[in-house]
Design a protein around this nucleic acid. Structure first.
Lengths: 147, 147
DNA sequence: CTCGGTGCAAATGCTTTGCAATGTC
DNA sequence: GACATTGCAAAGCATTTGCACCGAG
């Protein structure tokens, strides 16, 4: 991915706020997010940072993830359990999720018809959409076979 | 609503399991759910039960809500905060949610085109859908006006 | 130099759990 | 009578907070 472009998004967002500061910790979290594949939680990102020798606290990781969500660089989801899941959103198309309740696997899918209908519904209700998340819970093909 | 029909669903589910028992607490929780309007959390349902003179513990309320979700009598959602939200699902059409990030208001909407596309996607991916939840986050019409 | 951000540990709040008592089947 | 379920309080766990220190602007 284009790391520099992502950094620029963050830098611009921080400047635009007028008060928020560009700290090395925030960019370190961003870099770790950019390296990530798929979904992760705050804890695992924290451990990845620490094991890479980056000195950050868990609190800062949570803070930074919220910040990155605000600039659209990460997406945050709540699926079944109590843990929030994140994924990088930079340079990725808008997509949705199918969550297998048996193996916990998460499949992504893109469907532009879905997005179009969402837009329709929003304009009908005069609702300004900022983000959306469709979660389909059920059984994935692999687990279906096993039964 | 048809309270008796809902009781029957629960009774049947309990019998089908072969071991789970029909306790007065479970039916009391079900009755409270049936009386509810819109979304609620476990805590508020618990207080409603207690103030109606029903003797239940919070643990039992959580347990019963899970059970009712299993029989499709309630739906469980996780929106923005850490609290799980529930709503009665008995005799209600499948619907989705728009969540206003400013006032916290939750609007429901039904859209059968959306449901049809979901079915399409599931059969494409050979995924067996059990439930689904589309959440659109943004700003509701009332809050838009205020700005 | 100012005040926003950080690290740490403690606090918070929702939910689950352990265990003895209870009551369904 | 067996054992699933209950109530209670304590434990768990993800996340937030308070506060002294640090460092970006």
């Amino acid at each position: 991915m284009d790391i520099q472009a992502a950094h620029d998004v963050l830098t611009k967002h921080l400047k635009a706020s007028g008060r928020q500061r560009a700290t090395p910790e925030r960019f370190a979290v961003l870099d770790a997010v950019l390296e990530s594949q798929g979904h992760f939680d705050a804890e695992s990102l924290y451990y990845r940072l620490v094991s890479n020798g980056v000195k950050v606290s868990k609190a800062t990781v949570y803070n930074a993830l919220d910040l990155l969500q605000e600039c659209g660089l990460v997406s945050k989801y709540r699926f079944v359990d109590s843990t929030s899941r994140y994924e990088k959103a930079f340079g990725r198309p808008h997509h949705h999720h199918m969550i297998c309740l048996e193996c916990g696997d998460i499949l992504e899918f893109v469907n532009e018809k879905l997005d179009r209908i969402q837009d329709e519904v929003c304009s009908e209700k005069n609702f300004k959409s900022q983000s959306s998340s469709l979660q389909i819970f059920g059984t994935c093909s692999r687990c279906k076979k096993k039964e």
